[in-house]
Design a protein around this nucleic acid. Structure first.
Length: 547
RNA sequence: GGGCCGGUAGCUCAACUGGCAGAGCAGCGGACUUUUAAUCCGCGGGUUGUGGGUUCGAUUCCCACCCGGCCUACCA
C-alpha cells in the first residue's frame, strides 16, 4: 500500500503538466451522478427511425397535407449534441449524425418538469442522444422535432472546440484529427471528396476490364522508382526487407503472367523529406494495360480524371487558389523539349554537352552544381521553370532516357523514351510510359543505375535480376501509368498541403507523457461495473419517453 | 540541414517601452415559452511550451532545448 502510494507519487512527479480542467471535472461529476441514478451513460443500443436528413426529407414530403399541425407520427432521431439554446421553459438544440443536423425543440410542458430539468442538468455539448417526437416547422421556418422523450446514448467528457472558430491550431488538427473532424465541416468534406474520388477511379478501371490486385508491401528488393526506402527486418525469414517505394515491377510481372490489365491502389513509402507536396507514406494508383502505348494511356488518363471529377465533384471547373482549373478535354500536350524551350530557351537536344547545359542553367538562376549530371539538370529546369507555370492540365512527354530506366525508347530517337507526366495546378500528378519490355535493354539500364549508385546516387535503382528473368519470358507491349492519389485529392479539394488530405499525417511524437491516465485514475470506478452490465433493468428515468 | 515565424484558460485570440495575465466562446449559478454564434445578470477557470539567465520585477529581454508552421535544401 505504502509502496504503491510511493510509486504513484513518483509517477506523478515525473509526468508532464497536464491535469484535468474544470470542464472535464464538471462532466466527470455528471457521469458520477448518472451512475448513482442507475443510468448507463453508454448504452449498447439505440432506436432510430430516421437519419437527420431523412427526417427533414419526410417532413418536406408530407408537410402540405398537415396544415399547421405537427406530423402525427412519432419518429426517433439520434446524434451528437452540437448546440443548446436554453430559453427557460423551452430549449432549442441541434443534433448531428452522419447525414446532417436537425433541430430539437424541447418544451417543459410537453416533457414534464422532471425530464426537462434533467436535460438541462445532464446533457452537454458533444454528448450523443436519442430523441423521440413529432416533426414540425418552427415559427422561423426550421424543420424540427418536438421532443416527447429523449435518452442519453454516450456521455462526452471533453467539450468541443470554439463553436464559431472551430479548431484551427494545425498541430492539434493533425495530432487529434478526430477533434478536427468533429469541429470543422470543411475537414469532413475533404475526406468525403477523397473517398468519392477513389471510388470513381476504381469504377473507371473496373468497368474497362482491369483486374484489381495486391502485391507485396514488404519487399526483399525495392524498385520501380528512385527513392530511399524504409528498411525493416523480417525475423521469420531472417532477412532485411524494404517497405515498397513502388509496386511497378510486381504489376509488370503480372503482365508477363498473362493478365492484360491490372491495377493496384496502395500506400508507397519513401524515406525522404516531408513538405507541402510530399508525404513519406502516400497513396498511388498504378495501372498497366497490355497492347497499349503511352499515347493510349494519355487518353485513358484524361478520361479517368475527367470521370473522377464528374463523379466526385459534379463539375470540371475546379477552384485552385487564385486560379480556376478547367478539366474540359482535350488537355494541352507538349514535349519536354518544347516545354523547356518555351520556359527556359534551352533546347536540350542541341545542348547535349554537360558543361554547356550547366552554364546555361546557372545563367537562368537554376540551383545546380557543377557535378549535377545532364539529366538531373534537365529535371531541375523542369521543376523550377516549367512545373510551377503548368496550372491548366498539361501533358509533358518524351523524356531523356537517362531519367527513365523503365521506359521504352522512341524508335525514331533513342536518346528519348516514350514517357509523359501530367501537371495540373503546378502539381506533378501522374507519370506514365510505354513500358520497357526488352530484357537486355532493361538489364543495360539497371547496370547504368548500378554505376550511378556506385558514384553515390543513393536513389539509383538496384538491379532486379528476377525482374529481368520475368521479361525473358516475354512481356507484351504495354502502357503503364501511376497517379498520386493524395495530390489528386489536394487538387479536387483546393488544398495546398498534402497533410490536409491525409487523415492521420505523421508528426514527431511529443516527448513527454500526457499524464491523462494518471489524471483519470481516481475516476475508474465510474467505468461500467459488472452488475450494471449484466441484466440490470433499464432505468425508468432514462427510459424512452420517461417521466 | 539552414533561415524566418509561432507556442498565453477547454477553444479562438489580446496584453504598448519589462510593471497586478485579459476578452469572446465554452463551463458553473440565475432570468427568459420560437431560438439559429439566442439574449441579459453574476461567478469560477492560467506551470504564459520546458529549463536556465539578467532584473526589485519577465508572457515581454538573453541562452539552450522541445513541438509546430512557412521558405529553402533534399526529394523523379
Amino acid at each position: 500500500m505504502c509502496a504503491t502510494t510511493a510509486t504513484r507519487r513518483a509517477v506523478l512527479e515525473e509526468r508532464s503538466t497536464m491535469t484535468l480542467n474544470d470542464q472535464q471535472e464538471q462532466r466527470l461529476a455528471k457521469l458520477r451522478s448518472l451512475r448513482e441514478q442507475g443510468i448507463d451513460p453508454y448504452p449498447p443500443r439505440c432506436t432510430r427511425t430516421h437519419s437527420a436528413a431523412e427526417a427533414i426529407e419526410r417532413f418536406r414530403r408530407i408537410e402540405a397535407s398537415l396544415g399547421d399541425e405537427p406530423d402525427p407520427e412519432a419518429i426517433s432521431v439520434v446524434g451528437r449534441v452540437v448546440a443548446i439554446r436554453d430559453l427557460g421553459r423551452i430549449i432549442f438544440s441541434h443534433i448531428r449524425d452522419g447525414s446532417g443536423a436537425i433541430q430539437l425543440y424541447l418544451r417543459r410542458d410537453l416533457l414534464g418538469d422532471e425530464r426537462f430539468a434533467w436535460f438541462k442538468r445532464f446533457v452537454d455539448l458533444n454528448d450523443f442522444v436519442e430523441a423521440q417526437g413529432n416533426l414540425f416547422r418552427t415559427r422561423t421556418g426550421e424543420i424540427s422535432v418536438q421532443v416527447t422523450g429523449f435518452r442519453l446514448l454516450s456521455k462526452a467528457l471533453n467539450p468541443p472546440p470554439d463553436k464559431w472558430h472551430g479548431l484551427s491550431d494545425v498541430e492539434t488538427r493533425y495530432r487529434q484529427r478526430y477533434v478536427d473532424l468533429l469541429a470543422n465541416d470543411e475537414t469532413r468534406r475533404i475526406f468525403v471528396v477523397r473517398a468519392n474520388l477513389v471510388r470513381a477511379l476504381r469504377r473507371y478501371l473496373d468497368e474497362r476490364g482491369f483486374l484489381e490486385v495486391e502485391t507485396p508491401t514488404l519487399q526483399p528488393l525495392y524498385g520501380g522508382a528512385a527513392a530511399r526506402p524504409f528498411t525493416t527486418y523480417y525475423h521469420a525469414l531472417d532477412q532485411t526487407f524494404y517497405l515498397r517505394i513502388s509496386d511497378e515491377l510486381y504489376l509488370k510481372r503480372l503482365l508477363v503472367g498473362g493478365y492484360d490489365r491490372v491495377y493496384e491502389m496502395c500506400k508507397d513509402f519513401r524515406n525522404e523529406g516531408i513538405d507541402a507536396r510530399h508525404s513519406p507514406e502516400f497513396t498511388m494508383l498504378e495501372f498497366y494495360a497490355a497492347y497499349c502505348d503511352y499515347l493510349d494511356v494519355m487518353q485513358m488518363c484524361e478520361e479517368m480524371v475527367v470521370h473522377a471529377a464528374e463523379q466526385s465533384l459534379g463539375t470540371l471547373l475546379i477552384p485552385w487558389g487564385e486560379h480556376t482549373i478547367d478539366l474540359t478535354p482535350p488537355w494541352r500536350r507538349l514535349t519536354l523539349r518544347d516545354a523547356l524551350i518555351e520556359h527556359t530557351g534551352i533546347d536540350f537536344l542541341e545542348v547535349n554537352d554537360q558543361a554547356e547545359l550547366y552554364a546555361r542553367a546557372r545563367a537562368l538562376g537554376a540551383d545546380v552544381l557543377p557535378t549535377t549530371v545532364w539529366p538531373r539538370i534537365l529535371d531541375e529546369l523542369l521543376k523550377t521553370f516549367v512545373r510551377p507555370r503548368l496550372i491548366q492540365p498539361t501533358f509533358v512527354y518524351d523524356y531523356p532516357v537517362e531519367l527513365s530506366p523503365l521506359a521504352k525508347r522512341k524508335p525514331e530517337d533513342p536518346r528519348l523514351v516514350e514517357r509523359f507526366q501530367l501537371f495540373i495546378g503546378g502539381l506533378e500528378l501522374a507519370n506514365a510510359y510505354t513500358e520497357l519490355n526488352d530484357p537486355l535493354d532493361q538489364l543495360a539500364r539497371f547496370l547504368e543505375q548500378a554505376r550511378d549508385r556506385e558514384l553515390g546516387d543513393e536513389e539509383a535503382m538496384p538491379i532486379d535480376e528476377d525482374y529481368v528473368n520475368a521479361l525473358m519470358y516475354g512481356m507484351p507491349p504495354t502502357g503503364g501509368f501511376g497517379i498520386g492519389i493524395d495530390r489528386l485529392a489536394m487538387l479536387f479539394t483546393n488544398q495546398q498541403n498534402i497533410r490536409e488530405v491525409i487523415l492521420f499525417p505523421q508528426l514527431r511524437v511529443k516527448p513527454e507523457p500526457t499524464g491523462l491516465a494518471e489524471d483519470l485514475a481516481p475516476y475508474l470506478d465510474l467505468a461500467a461495473a459488472p452488475d450494471q452490465v449484466s441484466g440490470a433493468a433499464p432505468s425508468i428515468d432514462n427510459d424512452v419517453g420517461g417521466s
